[in-house]
């Protein structure tokens, strides 16, 4: 590899990162703007963060979003894990191809269609739109993502671990909870986090399936932006970015540390 910073390399990296991060940087910078005008810099201030916490509408929306995300991610993780188990374990049942296709179709389904069809369903069964319907819709949306993550882990799972547990006297259910579940837990956790994030930032499906009193944060931000962008929204978004970034950094640091520790252990074991 060429270690020197050629002009071409520098240009590519600047262009690439500018594309990725310029909008976000602008948003963060203007959240600290003194002026009420979004595009005019009026000096540094944190007053929009203070007023954000006094904006009851935004705070309510945040609370709704958090609850929807936690509940739907949890239910989707259970269902997605079960689907993944079935798809990897019972490989010879009739219609497996169809079933797996149907589980994964929502991955590529346009969200507008998912949202619309869910709306039609809720209207048809007479379910009042609100907290429950958004949560159900988000379970539908995120379940398949969990299934994909967990299934890829199960593909490399050594079945002889389960056989060994049963051989040593553990019935199937006990084997599942004492052996299978702990071993695939990291995949389940990342599935949950993926589902949580997806639910957190979904606008399209929420707009279709939500009702009065259950406005999610993305919906709230979107509707406020249509009335004009306020620096308050910038502040809300900056906090969201910070939360996500901290989460990602912690997760990758923990991962890295575990990997390093593991390598050190293995080398130590090799030396005897």
């Amino acid at each position: 590899m060429n270690p020197t910073w050629s002009r071409f390399n520098i240009t590519s990296i600047v262009l690439g990162f500018a594309f990725l991060y310029l909008p976000i940087v602008l948003l963060v910078v203007f959240s600290f703007n003194e002026s009420k005008l979004v595009t005019v810099w009026g000096g540094f201030s944190t007053k929009w963060y203070v007023s954000l916490f006094h904006n009851q509408g935004l705070m309510d929306a945040t609370w709704v979003t958090a609850r929807v995300a936690v509940i739907s991610a949890t239910v989707a993780t259970v269902l997605g894990t079960l689907a993944a188990l079935t798809l990897t374990r019972y490989t010879r049942f009739k219609g497996r191809m169809l079933f797996s296709g149907m589980v994964f179709a929502p991955l590529v389904m346009p969200e507008v269609i998912t949202g619309l069809s869910l709306l039609l369903l809720f209207v048809a069964v007479g379910l009042d739109r609100g907290f429950l319907t958004v949560t159900l819709a988000h379970i539908t949306l995120t379940m398949c993502f969990v299934a994909v993550v967990v299934q890829s882990r199960l593909m490399t799972f050594d079945r002889s671990l389960e056989e060994a547990a049963m051989d040593l006297g553990a019935p199937p259910v006990k084997t599942f909870f004492q052996i299978t579940l702990p071993v695939i837990m990291p995949a389940i956790v990342s599935g949950w986090m993926l589902a949580f994030t997806l639910s957190l930032d979904d606008l399209v499906i929420a707009s279709f399936t939500s009702g009065p009193g259950a406005t999610t944060l993305p919906m709230k931000i979107y509707s406020q932006v249509r009335l004009g962008v306020t620096p308050e929204i910038n502040a809300a978004c900056t906090i969201l970015i910070a939360v996500v970034a901290v989460g990602v950094i912690i997760a990758s640091l923990a991962n890295k540390r575990r990997e390093v520790q593991r390598q050190r252990d293995e080398q130590a074991a090799q030396r005897g």
Binding site: D158, S160, L161, E163, A164, A165, M166, D167, L168, G169, A170, P171, I179, P182, V183
Partner: peptide, 29 residues
């Protein structure tokens, strides 16, 4: 079923439970 047979097996891949210590692996049965 395997969990009620008075036989035990040592697996080719060893099938040690990765999340348990040596002690707990041996104590499992």
């Amino acid at each position: 079923p395997p969990y009620r047979r008075p036989v035990n097996m040592m697996f080719q891949s060893y099938a040690l439970f990765p999340h348990m210590t040596v002690e707990n692996n041996i104590a499992f049965g």
